[in-house]
């Protein structure tokens, strides 16, 4: 579904550019949940940004469903791939109602039966039509993240890029959103690429995890290997030990 080969990216700076991704190779199958874990600055979000088109000028090859990403227009890309961001407070336009927020992607695509699609997306994320006239500030953090997820699934994409979707939420709300992501994954046959700094959250949702450090993937491990402690790299061991010590 997603194939990333020798992806590198240099962030242009005022004097010299800085390499923030170095020789990334990932292959993600259809319907898989794949995780990226690492510390701040390790480059995990940068991979999502290259995929989503927020970063231009990367080197290497990315193919989505066999089609080269470099040759895909942004509009085509948004049909197959959508993103959910970390901060549900910043991701929704503060002066747009929920109706307008969900209508926007449909309007851009020029799709018909907008109202039905909006209602269906809202229902999919566990909200109802009473939310339509409301503004983001009238919603709780968890409800906002549900709206952001509804916006991502409304165009019926195959792939969802999840950038720390629960780290700004309380643990009880995190559980609700994780459950929602699990059930959407199953119902819509989605492929997830999720970024998190929390190994517990990643391992809950993802079958395989790439561990990142300083712009490189140090190791790709399966969930079973993680649980059994079958990890090779010293940094993975640090993360794992930390996660286990707190259970």
């Amino acid at each position: 579904m997603i194939s990333i080969q020798s992806l590198s990216f240099d962030m242009p700076g005022s004097t010299k550019s800085k390499r923030i991704l170095n020789d990334i190779n990932i292959s993600i199958g259809k319907g898989e949940c794949f995780g990226l874990v690492g510390e701040s600055g390790s480059g995990k979000t940068s991979i999502l940004k290259c995929l989503a088109g927020q970063f231009q000028g990367w080197e290497g090859a990315i193919a989505i469903q066999g089609k080269s990403l470099a040759e895909t227009s942004l509009k085509e890309r948004s049909n197959t791939m959508q993103m959910v961001f970390q901060d549900p407070y910043g991701a929704l336009h503060p002066r747009h109602t929920i109706r307008k927020i969900l209508n926007e992607p449909l309007a851009i695509k020029g799709l018909s039966d907008k109202s039905e699609r909006i209602l269906k997306a809202l229902k999919d994320v566990g909200l109802d039509e009473t939310f339509l006239p409301r503004y983001p500030h009238q919603l709780s953090g968890g409800q906002r993240q549900r709206v952001a997820i509804a916006r991502a699934i409304i165009l019926d994409p195959d792939i969802i890029l999840l950038d720390e979707p629960t780290s700004a939420l309380d643990v009880s709300v995190q559980a609700e959103i994780l459950n929602l992501l699990t059930s959407l994954h199953r119902r819509h046959q989605l492929t997830y690429l999720m970024v998190s700094h929390d190994l517990g959250v990643i391992a809950h949702l993802c079958e395989r995890v790439a561990v990142m450090k300083s712009g490189e993937i140090v190791e790709v491990v399966s969930r079973d290997d993680l649980v059994e402690g079958n990890v090779a790299h010293a940094y993975t061991k640090v993360l794992l030990q930390h996660a286990l010590s707190r259970e």
């Binding site: 995190q174 517990g200 391992a203 809950h204 649980v227 794992l240 286990l244 259970e247």
Partner: peptide
């Protein structure tokens, strides 16, 4: 409500 590595629940 915390996800657990050792005892994963669907």
């Amino acid at each position: 409500s915390l996800p657990s590595l050792k005892h994963r629940r669907e």
